[in-house]
Simulated assay, not measured.
Amino acid sequence: MAVIAYMALVGLIYFSQRSLLYPGAGAAPLPEPANWGETIHIKTPDGEILQALYSQGDSDKPCVLLFFGNGDRVDNYAFLAQALAARGIGLLAISYRGYPGSTGSPSEQGLLTDGIAAFDWLSAQTKSGIVVLGRSLGTGVAVNTAGQRPAVGLVLVSPYLSVLSVAQMHYPFLPVEFLLKDPFRSDLNIAKVRQPKLFLHGRLDDSIPLSSGQALFHLAPEPKQMLIYDRAGHNDIFNDGMVGDVIGFVEAVKANGP
């Protein structure tokens, strides 16, 4: 009976894993009008339509391209858009396929495709460079995008070595390496990112432990910097100080050139 119960659990995890990994998919639509920026739509090479919010910055300032976490929404980032706008910095935040306002269903390959499509759209709007910013799950999208496109900088908030390694930590009793469809192997992609990189992590993070972010940081090529916030966890890492660190990085990238 124990074996049957275990096999049933393995089957349940396998078939429900994408609903667990992408809890924000299929959530309530984005409000109209949005609480920040302009609503735009981006078509991906495989025919999906992504809804996004875009706040245009000054023509001589880089723009930030945001990839959020797995349960997040683009309309949660008015605070970031406003802080960036005060310094003349623009922001594009996309709703992944299957997430509010966008067509399709999420998967690793789908999200990576979305990231490239978003970068290509934004590069046609701005000539002053793009800083890619990923948070949590979105750090895997950000690493892949910066490795394939000429971003001027990369910011990773609560990054992981891989989703596979995080899943192994949370489910040590399951053969995760054989079950996981979307491993998001940032550890295999970070070497391609030669641009300046800023890693931000909360010491109290119990969703993606600091050790996972540090492991990715150690694999990353120079130039790179890591800031650790002693009193922050996973969901409370964004505050005025942290946003100030992001803005400082974006402005330094511009000052120093690509």
Rank of each mutant, 00 (worst) to 15 (best):
F199M: 09
H201E: 07
M226Q: 11
H234A: 01
G213Q: 01
V193D: 01
L200F: 00
I208P: 00
G202V: 11
D182Y: 07
G202S: 02
D182T: 05
K224M: 00
A220Y: 05
P221K: 09
P196G: 10
D205V: 14
Q225V: 07
F199N: 02
D205W: 00
L188Q: 15
P221Y: 10
S212N: 08
F184A: 13
F199R: 07
P196W: 04
K197V: 12
R194Y: 13
F217R: 00
P183Y: 13
H218Y: 07
D187L: 10
L227Y: 02
Q225P: 09
P209N: 08
F184H: 05
N189P: 05
R231D: 15
A191R: 15
P196M: 10
F184R: 06
I208Q: 02
D187V: 10
L198P: 01
L200Q: 04
P223V: 01
F199H: 06
S211V: 14
P221I: 11
L219Q: 08
S212H: 13
R194E: 15
G202N: 04
N189D: 15
D206V: 13
I190C: 03
S211L: 14
D205L: 06
S186M: 08
P209S: 14
I190K: 03
R231S: 08
D230L: 08
D206R: 05
D187Y: 12
Y229V: 09
G213C: 04
R231E: 14
P183C: 13
R203S: 05
L204W: 08
S211C: 03
L204H: 07
L204E: 08
Q214H: 09
K192D: 13
G213A: 01
Y229L: 03
F199D: 03
S207A: 12
G233Q: 04
D187T: 08
R185F: 01
A232I: 00
N189K: 15
P209D: 09
